[in-house]
Write a protein that binds this DNA or RNA. Structure first.
Lengths: 345, 345
DNA sequence: TTGTAGGCGTTATCAC
DNA sequence: GTGATAACGCCTACAA
């Protein structure tokens, strides 16, 4: 199945002009007479000529497409980020190529490898939970591939980064629970190697410290797969509930983790918030119709996607090497709902 | 910012061979001696040579990428479909380029236009709610661009199509409500121009008819934007509730519509299912933690995405023109939960 | 077994 | 103002 299209050559032949004349006319060069320019443009319009982007890419050495690597698209936070990426990219004439790492280091490596090799002008990436080494990205970055990190970032590579204020988001969530009278607040979070995990953990700890509550490491549970595996979360929860002193609240640090925890607590028939209060991290538009409606830290996902794309495009389109890099930190919003309001018990 | 990579030419120069020898060696041609072959392959491996996909594309006249148009990625059904698309495409060495129509006809046209013009080998599409004419797709299809439709399909174009069994899904949902004793079952659905809307409506009507319940057109509400606009759904609901005889159940026919309806009913403090039972159409993994947990028709989204991609790739890679086209209809699953169980009232 | 030449569609340089 | 020509990186008849 071939898809044959009109080329500059066809136009040249049809109009009895040379290829280069047509090319120049199409680009509106001033060294072509008005007359021929009009003729060429009209013919092009009438026959719906579209320059072959692949040939242009080969010529220009760039593809006008950007690659995206996220762990999973079926996640409200990431799909909203991608929504933002797509909206900006589209406007600026770039294609967006999405890939998923499924939290696997290996897939992340192969995706980044595949996306580079010049089929992509730049990369927007949120690291997988498994990723510990940045060699694959360092290599690409050193070769000159513009990269922008968002959400799960690293500081091993000097480039632009966009994150939500994870520290503050977690701090506020924890503080809120403290204000509700909770004292044994558990923290269920993702892989400890992720930047977001560390930052959220810090915010959580600081809030406890500031309230004079001593942290208890047994209340902190890591789920290396960030909730993708239900059993992992189940195990964490079971351990928490078997502690001599049960937690009176849980703060979950990721989208999937939050919904899974809510689901598991429901299944165990544990009253929320009365027995255990719950604050999640989620961008689900449905958090308000959960049972109970879920208090959550909401990230400006759309905005993060837009910003990341603008930064990436500025790197890609910059004429001179960029030496100044930004780390943009966007505020989160704590949406307070039923799941954390002890006062109603 | 340029990203200079190793080319065949560099290898040729380094090894004192001609370009074509290197090219052949790399592709393992048998007309090259083992010796040179090894030398070339080793050099390529050591210097991490990767063929430039853009040059290959230009040469071969295809890009090894496929385009996807969905209305919105931030929707569980579509993100799961894309998940499926991506998994197959990745395996077969194709890139996936995602675009969103945001339910706008205009955006759909510009996306399809942009994706074609040979930058994409084929197209997987689910029509926007606004789309009434297929001219833009017919044109591309006639020029030879392989297209596969899923979910929101048309029969104006002879090609492969994948859908869930919308008729049966709606029939079963309605029948279930009837079995719960509901008699005035409302149907809140998307734009009437969509295939899915028509099919689900038919299933709904047939179930009523089979139960000897006379349909009442006032109970059928169309939301042209499929729930993307909350006010639209609000309006539909308000009208339903103002009827002389209120509905005793609502069957919502799309993802966003279902969550919005649940949210609105909650806000109005209408007990579900006791005053109004609710069955939705959703692929949200969170349906079980909704308040109340939501009985829903679940579509095999991942499977649909995989199948669509396999069919598209078979079209793309077929040597001879394909004349036989399939319409695959996949079964949905009715997951029964609290929102529809009148018996518990 | 290896090398040469031409072309995919576009653009940039340089001659006419 | 217009048109050859070469180049982007790869592939493939066809020659050597």
């Amino acid at each position: 199945m071939k898809f044959e299209a009109l080329t500059i050559k066809d136009i040249a032949k049809a109009l009895g002009l040379s290829i280069s004349t047509v090319s120049k006319a199409l680009r509106g060069s001033h060294e072509i007479s008005e007359e021929t320019k009009q003729a060429v443009l009209r013919y092009a319009r009438e026959h719906n000529y579209k320059p072959n982007p692949i040939a242009q890419s080969l010529k220009r050495g760039q593809s006008r497409s950007i690659g995206v690597i996220v762990c999973n698209i079926d996640n409200n936070f990431f799909s909203q980020v991608i929504n933002g990426i797509e909206s900006i990219a589209q406007n600026r004439g770039y294609n967006v190529i999405i890939t998923q790492s499924q939290e696997s280091y290996e897939k992340e490596v192969s995706n980044s490898d595949h996306l580079s090799s010049r089929s992509v002008d730049g990369l927007i990436i949120s690291l997988s939970a498994e990723t510990q080494h940045m060699d694959h990205l360092v290599k690409l970055h050193e070769k000159g591939l513009p990269i922008v990190f968002f959400d799960r970032i690293t500081d091993e590579i000097r480039t632009h980064r966009i994150v939500a204020n994870n520290y503050k988001g977690a701090y506020e969530a924890t503080k809120h629970l403290l204000q509700q009278g909770c004292r044994r607040i558990a923290h269920v979070t993702s892989s400890g190697s992720l930047s977001i995990t560390r930052e959220r953990l810090e915010g959580y700890k600081q809030a406890l410290a500031d309230a004079g509550v001593t942290a208890d490491d047994r209340l902190i549970k890591f789920c290396p797969h960030g909730g993708m595996i239900r059993e992992e979360t189940q195990q964490a929860l079971t351990e928490l509930l078997q502690l001599p002193e049960r937690p009176d609240a849980i703060f979950t640090a990721s989208d999937r983790l939050s919904t899974t925890t809510l689901s598991l607590l429901q299944a165990m028939r544990i009253p929320i918030p009365c027995e255990i209060a719950l604050v999640g991290y989620t961008n689900s538009i449905s958090a308000e119709i959960f049972n109970p409606s879920l208090t959550s830290v909401v990230q400006p996902a759309l905005e993060m996607g837009k910003l990341a794309t603008e930064m990436l495009l500025s790197l890609i389109e910059s004429r001179r090497p960029v030496t100044h890099f930004e780390k943009r930190i966007l505020d989160t919003e704590l949406q307070i709902r039923e799941s954390s309001q002890k006062s109603r018990c």
